[in-house]
Nucleic acid binder design. Sequence first.
DNA 1: ACGCAGGGTAGACACTGTCTACGCCGCCTG
DNA 2: CAGGCGGCGTAGACAGTGTCTACCCTGCGT
Lengths: 194, 194
Amino acid sequence: MDADETGLRARLVAAGVDLVLREGQSAVSLREIARRAGVSHGAPRRYFPSHVDLLSAIAREGFADLTARVEQTMRDVDPDPRTRLTALARTYLDFAATHRGMFELMFRHDLLDSGRLRLRETSLPLFAVLADLVARARRPTDAPAAVLAGALWANLHGIAQLWAWGSLPLATGTTDDDALLRAALEAHLGPAPA
Amino acid sequence: MDADETGLRARLVAAGVDLVLREGQSAVSLREIARRAGVSHGAPRRYFPSHVDLLSAIAREGFADLTARVEQTMRDVDPDPRTRLTALARTYLDFAATHRGMFELMFRHDLLDSGRLRLRETSLPLFAVLADLVARARRPTDAPAAVLAGALWANLHGIAQLWAWGSLPLATGTTDDDALLRAALEAHLGPAPA
DNA sequence: ACGCAGGGTAGACACTGTCTACGCCGCCTG
DNA sequence: CAGGCGGCGTAGACAGTGTCTACCCTGCGT
């Protein structure tokens, strides 16, 4: 979506994405991606004046990837809102688990330039999908749709976060990943349909 | 609780806690706390062989602080489980908001030596308080207590995380902090009592 | 009185982000 | 066609970092 795919900028971002997936955020240095792209240590500066700019560009790719996955899921799955929400949740958690370093980076607001690059807004379409489904699955007595959606997203995000940290199995004494997710969905959306 | 309060080790940790609260995790370098303690850059090495060891010691203080606050809350508030859970939740979120840098550090598993120092287990007493209250507030049709407690904790944690990131108001379009918290509590524990 | 160990000093190394001056090559203009 | 000029990458420098190592100094026990 950004200019030519073969340019140095694209190669640098690609190297960064690869690195963050493989070794985590802390492995992504300007000099290292320069090395991987076979250019001098000062070259990235043309496209990323600071480290933050580079990380932000990488995180952007992450959001794009996650969004694409969610959209694919929406294409694959039954239109029933509850079914879709469950699928979306699994996609979210699966992404967090299999793209750990990227997921971490995506929410490291201290490393990202969420202001200038409006990076946060990259996550808005994602939230819009969730909000729409929640609005349709919402029961009359539930909280307003926006609040309900926010609470559910927070729950998803928290599960992803605490899983990654490894403290949930430690604390709850269970390794049944899915139980927590099901409990969260039922809490916010009511009992699962038969 | 650790040895003498006046020793260099204690001074270093104190300087680190201060720094992390004031400027965030990234400001805490071994050399900087050495400077603040008025010792040479190599001195901390006696007590913290690596950066991870220092950060872990600081995070430990954070968990101790949070635990103390929660316990104080439990002393201050009505014994009714639901009331206590609400108070605990507010304490948790308040801590995350007012001790942002520390809260972040506490859950940066990539920076902490959660293995050797068994740092994760520092959070267990905290979870135990939550789990106990949840067990008492739980309705018969709810998920098992451990799962319910895990789901609720995840929700709390997610709210704290997304708040800190500033994306919740952006996404939900509301600045009513408390609505989300109330929604989460009601979702997991049922409608609020009159 | 001796020496020995714990605790702090100081220098070195490799690495990082950032800044600056410098070349190279191609394109646009006169 | 000649000239220059601007984008792009190179290369060196600087301050800062974590980590390692050799050293020293002081106080204690024998």
